[in-house]
Simulated scan of single mutants.
Amino acid sequence: MTVFRVAAGAAGLALLGEGVSLLRDVPGPGDVLLWLAGAVALHDALIAPLVLLIGRLLVRGRLRGPVRGALLVAGALTLVALPPLLRPGPRANPSVLPLDYPRNWLITLAAVAAVTVVYAAARAVLRARRGDVRGQ
């Protein structure tokens, strides 16, 4: 597992470096940095605490981890989707935000929920095969 973590960390740092190098070409990089800082603050101040609280209140036992993971992914997807979601309605230029973003956001959230259910079910089946019934 340590090799995987080091490789994932190296890949993340490489992508971060690429993103920073591309930031030089953006007009008004201060605005981008402000948006990124706001996204981090929103995640740390709102999304993460809500995920932990909802996971604690709604789910008990071994399902808590997968549900918290799904809520965290859903929160991050919502954060990324907020700009197009908050600009509904017709636009003068139809090539700006041309897709049905609310529908696509809901489809993505449904896919996250479906993957979570499949993952939790597979985990339960594997646990039952091993005879591990603690905590249920």
Rank of each mutant, 00 (worst) to 15 (best):
L109A: 03
I47A: 11
G55V: 08
L99F: 15
L57N: 07
V32C: 04
A122I: 11
G89I: 03
V80W: 07
A76P: 00
V115W: 05
L36V: 12
V80Q: 01
A121T: 04
G75P: 05
D25N: 09
R62H: 12
P29E: 06
E18L: 14
V26P: 03
G55M: 09
A39P: 02
Y101F: 11
L46T: 00
V67L: 06
W105M: 02
A111E: 09
V67I: 14
G61F: 10
R103Q: 10
G55E: 06
A70P: 09
I54Y: 09
L33W: 07
G38H: 10
Y101K: 03
I47L: 14
V51T: 13
E18F: 13
N104C: 00
L53N: 00
R64I: 01
I54L: 15
L53M: 12
I47C: 09
P83M: 07
G38W: 06
S95C: 00
R91Y: 08
I107H: 07
T108Q: 05
G28D: 13
R62Q: 09
V51P: 12
V118L: 15
R60W: 08
L86M: 12
N93F: 10
L85V: 11
G55Q: 06
I107F: 11
A110T: 06
L23M: 09
P66C: 04
V73H: 02
G89F: 04
P94W: 08
L86H: 01
A92P: 00
P66Y: 06
L42K: 08
L82Y: 10
V96A: 11
D100V: 02
A110E: 12
L79Q: 15
G69K: 00
V80R: 02
N93T: 08
A92N: 07
P90Q: 08
P94I: 02
V96M: 07
T78S: 08
V40S: 01
N93K: 00
I107Y: 06
L72Q: 14
P102H: 02
V73F: 04
V96N: 03
L46Y: 14
V80H: 01
Y101Q: 03
V40Y: 03
P27C: 07
P49K: 07
V40N: 02
G28E: 06
R123H: 06
G69A: 12
L79V: 04
P29Q: 05
T108C: 06
V96T: 01
R60A: 14
L53P: 00
R56V: 04
L85A: 08
R62I: 05
L36P: 03
A70H: 06
